[in-house]
Structures are given as structure tokens and as C-alpha cells.
Nucleic acid binder design. Structure first.
Lengths: 138, 138
DNA sequence: GAAAGCCTGCAATGGGATTGCAATGTTAGC
DNA sequence: GCTAACATTGCAATCCCATTGCAGGCTTTC
């Protein structure tokens, strides 16, 4: 089990410490993105700052991406396999449920070329959809 | 001049106080979205909290919308004329320049129906494009 | 086995958003 | 025109999350 996690860390040039494995192991299984506070609660009594720095390291190495879903609280989720240390997808699509407040990563969808004003150069696109998720939609 | 502003406020059911007129008058002329700190500086010595509450009131009444462009700092811009007290556009498109850090509202562009998972209901879409604006792109 | 470097955890800081409350201004009724 | 009721303003204080400083512990390497 944990071998996967360890390999994943090594593959991304992150030394697999106990703490990091705990954090990553928990994160990979999540269906939705988690905030630092979520992780702190779930992984208690692990130290919040250590989790925070683990996430930063992961993000730097392309294992995880951080999401600003408009709530003002940063959330984290594992990257799709084609993110690398030199950049993530340049298109992120997330869904925030008004009911349960969960943030889900959506499979990359076709985002059209936008009609930007003359001379404007697009480098990265973040799309946040708000609404109601399946579980809350009944 | 200010008659416009006053009427705009009244039309949205906001009492046109001196402070609110100053804030709104300044805001309508801006080509890009402003943070609270921007407004505080521009409107000195007006009180920051008062500006903040004016913006909240404006937002509530559909005069202004707030933007979270991913910088962690909320910015504000006037709504297009078809925003009302019962909801704003459900599609917001903004552009953040990596050079000058300005946030521009883009004219509503064609945003395609996204392939949401089964039973997911979309109510609002926020699209933030990051890149380089015309002024910085040379 | 010792030095160097990385990792961890506690404490403290920073910055923006938000609220409490008293003072002031505005409105409406008489 | 006066007064009571209500809305707005401004100061101070608080809250919350993100971030950093630093010292101690662990790991790795030679």
C-alpha cells in the first residue's frame, strides 16, 4: 500500500518522510479538495505547520495543486498524473457545492479560446463552477 | 455629473450618502477592478471600513461585484447594467495581468456548457484568466 | 561517529476581512 | 420646526488563515 505513496514521492523528487507519506496517503484518497484545517483535523495530532509545508513542497514538485475556490480558503488536491515539477495544467476546472461546501476537481473539460482583447496573452485559466453537487441535489 | 451616480444608487435602492457617492463615482470610472486598499488610497482620507461597508451594500444591491482573482485579495468592480438585486451575471470572466497585477473584467464571452458529472447543477461560473495585458505585453 | 543538511514543531507575526459600539447624520411623523 | 426612530460612519478591536523564525531532532554522507 504505502509503497505506492513512497514511490510517488520519490518519483517527484521529494524525500519520503513519515509525515509526508501520511499527508499524501490521505490526500490521494479524497474525492474532493481539502483545506489545511481539514487535513489538520483528519490527521490530528499532526502539526498544522508541518502539513502546510508538506503541501507546499508537494505543490512545488507537482504532486498537488492548490485551489482558490473563492471561499478565501486555499484547498489542496492531488494533481492528475500529467502535472510535472515544471508546471501544472494550465487549465484548472473546479466545482464548489453550495450545499456541502465541497470542492471537486473536474476532469479537464474543453475550455474554448476566449475572445481576449487585442494584445492580451493568456497563460493560465482557472474555472470555478458553483452549484449543487449530486449528493446535495435531491 | 453626480446626478448619474445618485440616480444609480437610488435605482438600486441604496440611499445616496456622500460617502457612497464618492466611492461609486470613483469606481465606475475604473478600467480595472480595485481592492479595498486601492480604494482607501485613492479616496484618502476616507475611512477604510466605511468604504468596505459601502462596497458590501453595493454588492448586495447588485451595483458592484466582488472578484477573487486568486491573489487572495478581494477586488471590486461595477456590474454590467443587467445585474440586479436578485443576482449578478452567473458568468464572470476576469483577466489578471502577471505584469501589472491589474484585474480586468472581460466582456462576457462564450463559455461553453461544461461536462459536469451526472446530477451536478451549475449555478454560477467564474473564469479567471492569467497572463499578460496589452500594456505589459511589449 | 561526526558534520552538514533537511525536516519538524512550537511560537510568533502579518495582513486582510469583519464586527462592536458609540457618535453622527438622515428621514419621517407630528 | 422639532423630535424620535432609524441608517450610516468611524474608531478600535478581533478573527482567521497564511506565513515565517528558530531551535531541536533526524538522516545522510563521508
Amino acid at each position: 500500500m504505502k509503497d505506492n505513496i513512497e514511490q510517488l514521492l520519490r518519483a517527484h523528487d521529494v524525500s519520503p518522510t513519515a509525515m509526508r507519506m501520511i499527508v499524501l496517503d490521505y490526500l490521494v484518497d479524497q474525492p474532493s479538495a481539502l483545506s489545511l484545517a481539514d487535513l489538520e483535523t483528519a490527521l490530528r495530532p499532526a502539526d498544522r505547520i508541518t502539513i502546510y509545508r508538506s503541501l507546499r513542497t508537494f505543490e512545488e514538485k507537482g504532486l498537488v495543486h492548490s485551489i482558490d475556490d473563492g471561499s478565501g480558503i486555499t484547498k489542496y488536491a492531488c494533481c492528475a498524473s500529467d502535472c510535472g515539477p515544471f508546471g501544472h495544467h494550465d487549465v484548472h476546472v473546479h466545482f464548489v457545492c453550495r450545499g456541502c461546501q465541497e470542492t471537486y476537481c473536474l476532469p479537464r473539460t474543453q475550455v474554448p479560446e476566449l475572445g481576449l482583447p487585442q494584445q492580451f496573452l493568456s497563460e493560465e485559466v482557472n474555472l470555478v463552477v458553483k452549484g449543487v453537487c449530486a449528493a446535495c441535489n435531491r
